[in-house]
Design a protein around this nucleic acid. Structure first.
Lengths: 213, 213
DNA sequence: ATCAAAAATGAGTGAGTACTCACACCTAGT
DNA sequence: ACTAGGTGTGAGTACTCACTCATTTTTGAT
């Protein structure tokens, strides 16, 4: 489909319409610069209708955020970690990780517009930040922990502090996604698969010259 | 000093005053939500005075950005890379890198408020994005290249793609800084030096179990 | 001390802003 | 056909915004 949350069904059609429009406008101009007038036009409803479903403009942002959080956690991250945890068909952890990361990096294109909104609002609104930690970070940490400790037990990964491993994972992927989605024109990524391969390589083995140590 | 660019001298006192105030207000609420009225009050000048020095509100942002770019490049990043390149006193590359990264992560506290502004505006304004690439990224890439290839030649670092190495560097540091400065209360970093040590470890050696390979 | 140019001022302006509300419209059940 | 309750509307409201400009204040050369 052309939209990313048409399958969410605990919302009325109108609410979906408004959130979808809000996402488009917010991601183009940012929350503060977006106007409820624009959102209404984009959604094809009257401005008053918006305020029947959302008390304030900020409530639209919160409503959008909840949907985004569910999508990121339930559709983007959890399934891939679970896939790694349950995939017994192949011995090679590297291959599985590469496949997952490649999938996610490519899938993120669809979600990036609204991720922009989340990123920028997290920086300035304490309540959105709290939502982010609550709905996303705290739900992902235990799953990553489980994945990581399992792989350490299997002898596939090295027992560094789990937080550091998670930061390395997220940091490497994040900056790749930013380069790909924000700076696509000025700092293009030529061969996507090759660059992803290189990302995995650095993530797994670091940049030091091992033979020396 | 209490401010970060008092030593910039190609600006009049009034301009500095206004930029400093703008930085404070922008970093608290974001560019769009900040008002010229607030900036004027914070700077202790009349609102009209602002528009004598900056044609539009966006020009204030651009003016601020230029200063920030110079500070990041000339005071934060270039000196540390140069220090690595010229430091012959110690053999241990790891120690030097750790020292530099630790210094930068601690120093960033001062600059983070304005970095927030840059980060969020890059996402939404093409012209700010172009400035960022032009004034920061393109100035740092060749220096990092030189540093990296030198260390590879010395046998200290592994010859992965330079872009990947740079992304690993930046990505790991960036996410650390974000955790430290944005999520300080909810996801605290307990032992800073220990966590930095771990960051370096993962950056240099990765997370895979080497003995297995 | 004088005065012209430059700098600073802040009330004013018109174009929006988020949000409201009285009314129109639709849909059932009878 | 009638009506009551929910749904949608968009002109209206009180207010805020970036920006202007006539006026006042400061400056510095004589």
């Amino acid at each position: 489909m052309d939209t990313f949350y048409t399958d969410i069904d605990d919302l009325s059609e109108k609410e979906k319409l408004i959130l979808e429009a809000a996402c488009k406008i917010f991601s183009a101009k940012g929350f503060s610069a977006a106007t409820t007038n624009e959102i209404a036009k984009e959604a094809g409803v009257a401005e008053g209708t918006i305020f029947r479903y959302f008390k304030t403009k900020k409530d639209i942002l919160r409503g959008l955020f909840i949907q985004i959080a569910n999508i990121i956690v339930d559709k983007m991250v959890l399934p891939s970690l679970e896939k790694i945890l349950t995939d017994t068909s192949r011995k090679n952890t590297r291959e599985i990780i590469r496949e997952i990361i490649a999938d996610r990096i490519k899938a993120v294109d669809v979600y990036f517009p609204m991720m922009k909104v989340v990123i920028s609002e997290i920086l300035f609104h304490e309540d959105i930040r709290a939502l982010f930690v609550d709905k996303i970070v705290n739900r992902l940490i235990p799953v990553f922990d489980e994945f990581y400790l399992r792989k350490v037990a299997e002898g596939e990964l090295r027992p560094v502090k789990t937080n550091s491993a998670m930061r390395a994972f997220v940091g490497n992927i994040m900056i790749f996604i930013i380069q790909k989605n924000v700076f696509a024109d000025k700092l293009p990524i030529d061969d996507l698969d090759e660059e992803i391969e290189s990302l995995i390589d650095v993530l797994l083995f670091g940049i030091s010259n091992h033979t020396k140590y």
